[in-house]
Design a protein around this nucleic acid. Structure first.
Lengths: 139, 139
DNA sequence: CATATGATTAGAATAACTCTAAATTTAAAC
DNA sequence: GTTTAAATTTAGAGTTATTCTAATCATATG
């Protein structure tokens, strides 16, 4: 089931976009509203399928253009995981990790507080970022 | 620079293959010898380029077939990382993690002893595997 | 409202594989 | 040692996810 996501009104989404310095076109409001308020780690293809049902007409290129714009604006994070070739988009822009349910393919955000790690590498290695994917099953 | 890799003789590689239950064809001996004795996290494309220089004639499909065979036989591990679409092949088949030098794109193996982590997730999450990519720079 | 800037579009192009069906090599049976 | 069967290799077509291109359309500003 989908964690506490609340649908967002179009004006709310529009404000989010404008605040982030993004021109609020109809396509962007639609896609952004879907990802922020409804979707859970959607791929571009899932966004396209959603748009085909909820938006009069949207090209695949617009989906890609838009998610890129939203990532650049700091509204989304993009992730790529080894189990799938498709990138996923996450409305959680804070540092966090992921858990992949290998049975269902579902991704769950993992808060950094749930993970306690320390890394000690040889001289010369400077760690600036950490990506963690936990794999397993979820009851 | 490449960590302590020693070239392997063809007979040694052949033995490795036979021991793993893999028919030791000329193509497999060549590719396996290259990855075990020389290469550092090569992609299929890099293996193909090496083969074009060191083997009379090898199709791209054979490169892909062969690395798949070697992975299935437990001789190699395959990894995919977010910074590149191409899979890489690792002669280290033990559990380990990676460090990506963002300046050079080089991957370095990270031994599990260098990483101390504990994960505590909510009830129902059973972790069966962990993938970690450290990103940064190396002097 | 004219015009420049920015966004959207369809479809072509690309990268990294995977698939297919035929040809070749190797192994197994006689 | 040939014949037969099984496994491997191959070229090229197909697939998937994404980017690029260049034309069209919308929006914002003077």
């Amino acid at each position: 089931m989908n964690r506490k996501k609340k649908p967002l009104s179009h004006p709310d989404v529009e404000k989010r976009l404008v605040d982030a310095g993004v021109q609020p076109t109809a396509q962007r409001i639609a896609i952004c509203g879907y990802i922020l308020g409804e979707a859970d780690h959607p791929t571009a293809e899932e966004i396209k399928k959603w748009a085909d049902r909820h938006f009069p007409k949207m090209s695949r290129a617009t989906v890609y253009n838009t998610v890129k714009t939203l990532v650049d604006a700091g509204i989304l994070q993009e992730f790529k995981f080894p189990h799938s070739d498709a990138a996923v988009y996450d409305s959680n822009t804070d540092i966090h990790y992921h858990f992949l349910d290998e049975k269902t393919g579902e991704l769950h955000d993992v808060q950094p507080e749930s993970v306690d790690l320390s890394v000690k590498l040889k001289e010369g290695f400077k760690v600036k970022g950490i990506q963690i994917l936990l794999r397993g099953t979820k009851k």
